[in-house]
Design a protein around this nucleic acid. Structure first.
Lengths: 209, 209
DNA sequence: TACTTTCTACCAAACGGTTGGTCTGATACT
DNA sequence: AGTATCAGACCAACCGTTTGGTAGAAAGTA
């Protein structure tokens, strides 16, 4: 693939953010890309298919997006920060460590369940990201792990939990929670809230004395 | 892409299994493919790269493999069955439900840790598999879940566990265990056995009274 | 043993197709 | 006049795959 210099291809810098119609199209393109990237993978989906999905010619796509890679990167913007914020708030909120952990797990699981497509692509396409975007993703994941680790550590020193290895506990917890994206089906047996509540309970049970 | 009929492309059916040299090459090709599929994804890795990795022209690859897709499918042959067998044995073995579950988790986690590349590709490239291979994968995953669900159910009725939703418990457990493939680094802080033991303990704690 | 045939493993090149990306000139609507 | 898009040609790069050929080992034959 041609990899033009840093600023190249940015002829479209003209884009004004004020116009509402253009912003609509842009989100439609992102939505279509997200759906296709989930179903066929980033490499497996073509710009042609994305264009078809939004009813544009593929050339017209480049009026909104400067490259396929940029499109992928933009899909992640802000998504993780949101959940990270909610989990962080729960971690720093009031209540015992046990209560806070429960709230954190709830927030995290709900975050996963409410953005299934994003989570799928986020987790599968790490290796398609340019280095800087990849670093960002890794920072976010580390921040999430740190939140959990900290609360687990607090809970241990306060007697809420009995835990020899808070780091490992955080990883186990995050695995359990993240994995819901692989089996959850909307309109299935369990609602999002039911799963989130159950997992919160399960988490404190795994750590509790 | 041209999708020839079922048996097409099998011109190489001549291949005799006796020759040791050819078998060596074949495993080398599979190993290279596995490594590349993990690093760049199935669609992202090219036959050219695989050929380069084993020191062949990409055309020569087709002396050993009838298509890229077949190469992917063959990578999975037998892998899951092995772990499935070990977990099944632990599930049907002697001991209390608590002891058996511990052994199952241990076996499963070790299976994941010892085949990191396979697990990565196995989990990421589901959507690249042809329908029959996909069905096989789904059957295997269901069988694994059933093993856990059954032992959890037994343990609950015998008082070993307190669990309202064995199905959900199995999914939570499997998520926790499967996820180790995302963070484990060989020669890291923890050995494979340490992780497997810890997770076994964690599992019975999550379910136990 | 010497000669011939067959088969294996691979080369080297080409094939048809698709890809991401660019460009152009026209055009409808605001 | 500016924005958003059409319609389509075009490109170099790369894709998975096929083909025809061939060096050399193996096997068969004398």
């Amino acid at each position: 693939m041609m990899r033009p210099g840093v600023g190249a291809g940015a002829v479209h810098r003209i884009r004004r953010r004020r116009n509402g119609k253009a912003a609509e199209r842009e989100t439609a393109i992102r939505a279509a890309a997200l759906r296709l990237f989930r179903r066929k993978g980033y490499e497996g989906a073509s710009m042609q298919e994305i264009a078809d999905a939004v009813g544009l010619y593929k050339g017209s796509l480049y009026y909104y997006v400067s490259s396929k890679e940029e499109l992928l990167v933009r899909l992640f913007e802000g998504r993780a920060e949101q959940v990270l914020g909610e989990v962080g708030a729960a971690a720093s909120g009031p209540g015992t460590a046990r209560e806070r952990l429960r709230a954190m797990v709830r927030a995290y699981v709900l975050g996963v369940l409410r953005h299934l497509d994003s989570v799928h692509v986020y987790l599968r396409e790490e290796h398609s990201l340019p280095p800087t975007a990849l670093k960002q993703v890794q920072r976010e994941q580390q921040a999430m792990r740190d939140h959990f680790e900290r609360v687990i550590l607090e809970g241990t020193s306060q007697g809420d939990f009995v835990e020899r290895d808070p780091r490992l506990a955080a990883l186990a917890l995050l695995g359990m929670c993240t994995w819901v994206h692989r089996w959850y089906r909307p309109r299935g047996r369990l609602t999002e809230n039911a799963i989130a509540d159950d997992y919160g309970e399960r988490a404190v049970r795994m750590l509790g004395p």
